[in-house]
Amino acid sequence: MRAGRDGAAETPETAGAAEQEARPRDARVRRDAHDTVEAAVRAQLSKALGGVRGMLEAAAPVTAFTLTYVLLDEVRTAVFAGIGAAVVLLLVRVVQRSNPQFVLNSLLGIAIAAFFALRSGDAEDAFLPGIMLNAAYAVGLTFSILVRWPAVGFIIGSVTGDPTAWRSDPGIVKLCSRLTWLLVLPCVLRVAVQYPIYIAAGDQSGLLGAAKIGMGWPLQVAALAAMVWLLARGRTPIERPRA
């Protein structure tokens, strides 16, 4: 037995009640902010994509690389253009004191692409890491669906504060599986289109660049629109009423 804040004796029962009250409030706040699965997923997906600015920042370095190579036919110069575009965008974020996450992601992506291109001297190799990454995403996301742990479900877990409780509701599992399939589809389409171009004879860097840009944020926006449409059709409570 110990003294409470007001000097009164604190019993195990009152201590337990106090501890329950003092549990992390952020999970409760997140639940209050989104009372349905659909609302939570929409909010988290929008945050993950970074909005229009985040998607444009992801596309800018690749665009700079492709256009420079098509115009000058020089791999090293194209690499510098791509990295330079990412650095400029990062500096803008720093000056504005805004979140640089999406610029850093694009900078890392163009740095890896540059390594592949400079190592071989072929501009097409700059696009190989992206093809491999999309293939890995497609396999990983599909596997998560097949084992009934769809990746989108963890968005629900991040909102409720319990990463696995959503699996006890078959309706939520089914919804998350459908949403995860919509994330798989763009990855499969990118690989299906870009890999045959990559292995084709001749210099295909210009065509690869156009395919990567055209199947980048526009395809992501289309997938997001499909997810929003699917989410708009239902109102699945994040927490079921207790019996």
Results as ranks from 00 to 15, higher is better:
118 L>N: 03
134 N>T: 06
93 R>F: 06
106 S>C: 09
71 L>Q: 11
70 V>C: 04
132 M>C: 13
117 A>H: 08
143 F>E: 11
88 V>Q: 08
154 F>Y: 13
116 F>N: 04
146 L>W: 15
149 W>H: 14
110 I>Y: 01
131 I>F: 00
107 L>T: 11
64 A>N: 08
124 E>P: 09
78 A>Y: 09
94 V>K: 10
101 Q>K: 15
77 T>M: 08
75 V>H: 10
90 L>E: 01
95 V>K: 07
70 V>S: 07
95 V>S: 02
152 V>M: 15
98 S>L: 04
99 N>A: 10
100 P>L: 03
137 Y>I: 00
104 L>K: 09
143 F>H: 15
81 A>W: 07
145 I>G: 02
144 S>R: 09
71 L>N: 01
111 A>N: 05
112 I>Q: 00
123 A>Q: 11
113 A>S: 14
103 V>H: 00
130 G>H: 12
118 L>W: 02
114 A>Y: 06
89 L>F: 04
124 E>C: 12
79 V>M: 08
142 T>N: 11
127 F>T: 01
106 S>G: 10
88 V>K: 06
101 Q>A: 15
114 A>Q: 04
67 L>C: 03
82 G>V: 01
121 G>P: 07
144 S>W: 05
145 I>L: 00
69 Y>P: 02
114 A>S: 14
100 P>R: 03
112 I>V: 11
75 V>F: 08
140 G>W: 14
64 A>C: 09
71 L>E: 08
68 T>C: 14
120 S>Y: 05
